[in-house]
Design a protein around this nucleic acid. Structure first.
Lengths: 221, 221
DNA sequence: TGTACATCAGTGAACGCGCGTTCACTGATGTAC
DNA sequence: TGTACATCAGTGAACGCGCGTTCACTGATGTAC
């Protein structure tokens, strides 16, 4: 098979180096992140994204090779930092199970309230059966997070703080469900709660979740 | 403005009446329901749907006028009956709040396990901000269901069965979150629980949800 | 410093493709007598 | 019953359109001397 010569820049040489490109790249990533979350990867159009970013339509392919490449870049530069922040805040809570759970809920709810596009993107492209980033995302992020939560719950059960008669995996599912769903179903939340979620409401929602969840799973002692 | 003459059948007259068309209609509705849930309304293609239904690509427009019309028909003939079943089973539980909540959880989980496409379709097209059926669905179905649940929770609080210190709307959100999320995030469930959801697992999940939820919201007495 | 030239970040225009939709047409099924 | 004809459920082929992608090209920015 013939070696396809790379059309995109690789070597360094005398000529003119980098220009102002950073801003356009960032604008593309922001517009892409927004469109992918809003209408889904398949339905989002590179031309629309370029229009929103006020950038030439050919630029997305120039920077990111193709549409999947743009999605990968969005994950890398927009999603990954938030997931890392979440992990760090749970880790910072120390070994206590209850404190870790509280840290997870407050951290997730805070991040989701500040980045409403994130849960939408995750549910569209990660959680559904045909999601485009399913494997990538689960391997890179979700696996680690759910493993950490299982460890926390198991620790709580071992330490007698959490009911030991509940299945660890299902307890984790309950916790994740309570945290994620409200940000996925924003129109439903608006209908049931009568308001859109802002950061203040998110904090109250987090407290409510913790109340119900911890009351349900804490051991009677 | 000129009256556009209807291209589609309206009057009845001597000529030949109905043929075998019912089957093709049903096949189209099933294929459309599946595709809409799998890839979303915008990304689903009428040609793909027709191919899957083993039907001419022009037939969807013939029967349902246009793509939104096909979606509306899917709602009417595939979604509405299930929502009505859900409402009926909750209503059949009688006035007791705890019994009504149990009925809701078991009915929803059962229906979702038997129709895995339903939660996917709802989250794609109803719950997200840009969903195609948002208004229609919420007006026709969700509103009634959430109102009924609020009434149930309020009744439980008034009757002293449920904690009165919790906000009714948020309790309803918790309940819906626990029920819906696992069927939306099937890959996550598979990852955390280690298995795909079938009807048996769904029943166990329902019991777990009820355990955690009711332990969390039931009054101490 | 000034000039000739090399580089390469970024683009305009065009590519083939699949989309939703349209519509003139087909032909089996019915009625009229 | 047999024949002529009307109906209309369903279709094949084509429509314009926006998609992701490609690539020859531009021209500001750099180096070389």
């Amino acid at each position: 098979m013939p070696i396809s010569k790379p059309r995109k820049p690789l070597p360094r040489a005398p000529g003119r180096p980098a220009a102002a490109g950073i801003d356009q790249r960032e604008a593309l990533l922001d517009a892409a992140r927004q469109q992918f979350a809003a209408v889904g990867f398949a339905a989002a159009s590179l031309r629309q994204i370029a229009l929103q970013a006020q950038v030439s339509p050919a630029l997305a392919n120039y920077y990111f090779n193709d549409k999947p490449g743009l999605l990968a870049a969005v994950i890398e530069h927009r999603v990954a930092p938030l997931v890392q922040e979440l992990g760090a805040r749970v880790a910072a809570a120390g070994p206590d199970a209850i404190a870790s759970i509280e840290a997870f809920v407050h951290a997730y709810v805070g991040i989701a309230a500040r980045n409403p596009w994130l849960p939408q993107l995750i549910v569209r492209e990660v959680l559904s059966d045909q999601g485009v980033l399913r494997e990538t995302f689960v391997r890179r992020f979700a696996g680690g997070m759910t493993d950490a939560l299982r460890a926390v719950v198991a620790r709580g059960q071992a330490g007698g703080q959490l009911r030991a008669d509940l299945d660890v995996a299902r307890v984790v599912m309950s916790l994740i469900s309570l945290c994620m769903f409200p940000f996925i179903a924003t129109p439903l939340v608006a209908g049931v709660l009568g308001v859109a979620i802002d950061e203040a409401h998110a904090r109250e929602l987090a407290s409510h979740h913790l109340d119900v969840f911890l009351s349900g799973v804490r051991s009677a002692a």
